[in-house]
Simulated assay, not measured.
Amino acid sequence: MNAEERLLTATAEHPFSLIFATISGAHLYGFASPDSDYDLRGCHVLPTANVVGLEPGPWTVQSERRDSDGFELDLVTHDAFKFLGLMLRKNGYVLEQLHSPLIVHTTPEHTELKAVALGCVTRYHSHHYLGFAETQWHLFEKGRPRRIKPVLYVYRVLLTGIHLMRTGEVEANLVRLNETARLSHVADLIARKVAGREGETLDDDVAWHRREYERLRQELESADRSSSLPERPTARAALDELLVRIRMRT
């Protein structure tokens, strides 16, 4: 089977009904290399019997696939109760998964969730991207040798956060983000990663990338301060109504 067939099989074999399943990770971010694994993310719906008992769940389903030809798949889905709850927090991951254009499985509820999600974005999502960028920067800076992948994640999350603060739109693809940012070094890093050259070291460029990291952090902080996004989500009632409708049908 090719990659698409194996992804479809993974969703078909899921133990619960899915609202959606999309591809995240390097494929979504625009810098998948030939050996990149597939990160499949989504939202499932537990049957009523799995919700009302003394031991409800599972709220999260995880599985892995490792084939002899090198294909690797990591699947993680959350039950609608947990997923919608995460949407109301400053969690950029779930919004990126929800809006991923790399759709493996979808439903009318998926479309509805994407529309409602506009009311989940707040200024405080900048904290998510600042925190993730800091974690990835430390991984890059402390690595021996320093590799391309961690620093690409640094640029990806900072540019995603800046774009979100300025537009309210969730955009996780670094290639598209860089069409606005126009950072030639980012384009070069993407090209090297996509070509399978991620093993190349960046040890001689750490100080330069640190300056860029600090500059983009400041840009994100500035975008946060000037953002017109609300401080609190406005979609709680709509998400509650949607969750009740989903549960009543199971």
Rank of each mutant, 00 (worst) to 15 (best):
T234H: 06
A115S: 06
A117P: 01
H27Q: 12
R197Q: 15
Q97H: 14
V45G: 00
G196S: 13
D240Y: 04
K114Q: 13
D37P: 09
A191Y: 05
R232E: 08
E5H: 14
L174E: 04
R232G: 00
R66P: 01
V116A: 11
I103A: 14
F83G: 06
L113M: 08
S228T: 12
T122D: 02
S33E: 13
L242F: 12
E231S: 11
L40Q: 05
L95R: 15
I148S: 03
G199C: 05
G161C: 13
E5K: 10
T22S: 05
Q218I: 07
G199T: 06
R211F: 03
F81M: 08
E55D: 10
K149R: 13
E109N: 02
F83Q: 10
V194Y: 10
E13K: 06
Q97P: 00
S126A: 15
R123D: 01
G168K: 09
G53D: 13
L159R: 07
P233F: 06
A181M: 10
E212P: 00
V170Q: 03
V175C: 08
H105M: 08
S228P: 02
Q97S: 14
T122I: 00
E200V: 01
K149T: 10
L216R: 12
R65A: 11
A237T: 13
A195P: 11
I103H: 07
S24R: 10
L95D: 03
E5G: 06
E198W: 07
E212Q: 11
Y124I: 00
A238Q: 12
L220M: 03
T111H: 04
K193G: 01
V94Q: 02
W59R: 14
A49N: 08
E4N: 09
K82M: 03
R217D: 00
L220P: 12
M165T: 06
V157H: 06
E231R: 13
L159K: 07
L28D: 06
G168L: 07
W137T: 09
R192K: 14
V206L: 12
H127Y: 09
A3M: 10
H125N: 07
A133P: 10
L7K: 13
T250G: 09
R245Y: 05
